[in-house]
Amino acid sequence: MSEAPAVPRPGSADRVHPAGLELLLIPPRARTGWRVLPARVGAMCAVELQKIRHDRTELYTRAVQPALWLLIFGETFTRIKAIPTGGIPYIDYLAPGIIAQSAMFIAIFYGIQIIWERDAGILTKLLVTPTPRSALITGKAFASGLKAVIQAVVVVVIAALLGVGMTWNPLRLLGVAVAVILGSAFFSCLSMTIAGIVLSRDRLMGIGQ
């Protein structure tokens, strides 16, 4: 008895799809084990970077405050010499404090952002995905550190234009960047933790102040 003739495959099966279409037709292999968390953290960091790239108004508006502190308060107190600084200009004292203050302000408002996302339903959609909650927090902490570094660069540039005495040693500047990133990430995580406890923007604002 002869075998049944083979069913001819459609022409589309033999066609080689471009690399972009293969991702749509053939799902990628799922990551397992220890590779899951780093992949999710990287994805959430990329999401936060996309937010910053698409909406840069927050970066510009937040850069105004440290600039005003340096240009107005720093120059004013330096000229009137109301605070004794031992011969060192007052603005030299003020510049590092403004960097720390800017990083802390950015970090504190991430708790408010979590509450906004919860009220809008965005947080609920993220929590039902396979993404670990630690990856969500890490992504937002990464964005907080990045914004703080951008503000620190603005402060350093303005301080240099105003004649603030500082070192240009690359290792020390890198140390400042690392300290700003870690400090901002710590306070953003603390702010989001408090936001998860109080569940209210008004209470969080009071604690933040």
Rank of each mutant, 00 (worst) to 15 (best):
L70R: 00
R118K: 13
S188Q: 03
M192W: 03
I122N: 07
F187A: 15
R35D: 08
V64G: 08
G111L: 11
L123C: 01
A135R: 04
G165K: 14
C45E: 05
M44H: 10
R62H: 08
S12R: 09
W116I: 06
A63Q: 04
A39C: 09
K81R: 15
Y110N: 11
V198Y: 10
A152Q: 02
A152I: 00
P5E: 14
K140Y: 04
M44A: 12
T129N: 10
L25A: 11
S2T: 12
E117Q: 12
W34Y: 09
L21F: 07
F77N: 03
I98Y: 00
S134H: 03
A195H: 06
T129L: 13
I80C: 05
W116V: 06
G196I: 01
P5W: 04
T76R: 12
A46M: 12
L146I: 10
V64S: 07
P18M: 09
K81F: 02
L173V: 10
I197P: 01
K147G: 11
G175R: 02
L71H: 14
T78V: 03
T138F: 12
V180L: 04
E3H: 05
L94T: 06
V149A: 12
V176N: 07
V36N: 05
G163T: 12
E75Y: 04
G175K: 03
